[in-house]
């Protein structure tokens, strides 16, 4: 028996909007730790890792570890039927081939349940080693989204370079080239509007903007984004989900042929 009651039901709606274009089908894993997902895109270039910790749910019952295969587009369709203020409960019986999403309006005057068929998914689970990153950039998520969108109108790839001067996002294309430099700025009144750069050594890596733009669909989940870079590892683009966990996107770089 599985029963997870999430008062902030719209969090789940936002999570689905953030991942459904990157991954078609995925296994959601439910354990005493929380509700999680790890999935790669079809070309095995990008990976999404989601964790919603059990403590973040108002009620969390998971009698045994369960893995539920879901089509994310279908799940998003069902969650779109929930109101933004609705409480969402995910329910599944042991051995069942369906999952039920229950939506309750805040004043309990409307209760809906949507039952979705589960699917068997053979997914490859990757071990992600703990790593020291050469540079960690924390900046407003809306600013990062804006930069990715702007640069993708010029070129297909972005070079992210971190030096003591700041973080530079560069692209080039047929019509010209563009550079955006963000300097460390911690003097603003609101911490969510600041940019901080923790650099152990300079790093410069090239990534496909198509994936970066896809990651920025998670912007509504968090006011800040953390970009961790190392010359030997995929970049990590992390959006913290307040009091619940995170959504992390890993992207392999483009390298000189």
């Amino acid at each position: 028996m599985l029963e997870l009651r999430l008062v902030q039901g719209n969090l789940l709606k936002k999570v689905l909007e953030a991942v459904k274009d990157l991954v078609t089908d995925a296994n959601f894993d439910c354990s005493s730790t929380g509700f999680s997902l790890q999935a790669m895109d079809s070309s095995h270039v990008a990976l999404v890792a989601l964790l919603l910790r059990s403590e973040g749910f108002e009620h969390y019952r998971c009698d045994r570890n369960v893995s539920m295969g879901m089509n994310l587009n279908n799940m998003a369709k069902m969650l779109k039927c929930a109101g933004n203020d609705d409480i969402v409960t995910i329910k599944a019986d042991d051995g069942s081939d369906t999952v039920t999403f229950m939506f309750e309006s805040p004043n309990q005057d409307k209760i809906a349940d949507f039952e979705m068929k589960l699917m068997d998914i053979d997914s490859e689970h990757l071990g992600i080693p703990e790593a020291e990153y050469h540079a960690i950039v924390r900046m407003p998520s809306s600013e990062f989204a804006r930069i990715c969108k702007d640069l993708s109108s010029i070129g297909d790839t972005v070079v992210i370079s971190v030096t003591k001067e700041g973080v530079k996002f560069s692209t080039r294309g047929d019509i010209g080239n563009a550079n955006v430099v963000c300097r460390q700025n911690t003097t603003v009144d609101k911490p969510e509007e600041s940019t901080t750069i923790e650099m152990h050594e300079p790093v410069s890596l090239t990534f496909a903007l198509r994936y970066m733009n896809s990651f920025t669909k998670a912007t509504p989940l968090s006011s800040t984004v953390t970009i961790s870079l190392s010359s030997e590892l995929p970049v990590v683009v992390e959006y913290k989900i307040a009091e619940m966990g995170y959504i992390r996107f890993y992207l392999a770089p483009k390298i000189e042929d």
């Binding site: 790669m40 070309s43 095995h44 270039v45 990008a46 990976l47 490859e124 689970h125 990757l126 071990g127 992600i128 080693p129 790839t157 090239t206 496909a208 030997e232 590892l233 995929p234 890993y250 392999a252 770089p253 483009k254 390298i255 000189e256 042929d257």
Partner: peptide, 14 residues
């Protein structure tokens, strides 16, 4: 010319 690589050289399947 830059080439897109996959995640597998970096992460191992478990």
């Amino acid at each position: 010319e830059v080439k897109q690589v996959g995640l597998f050289p970096f992460f191992e399947q478990v």
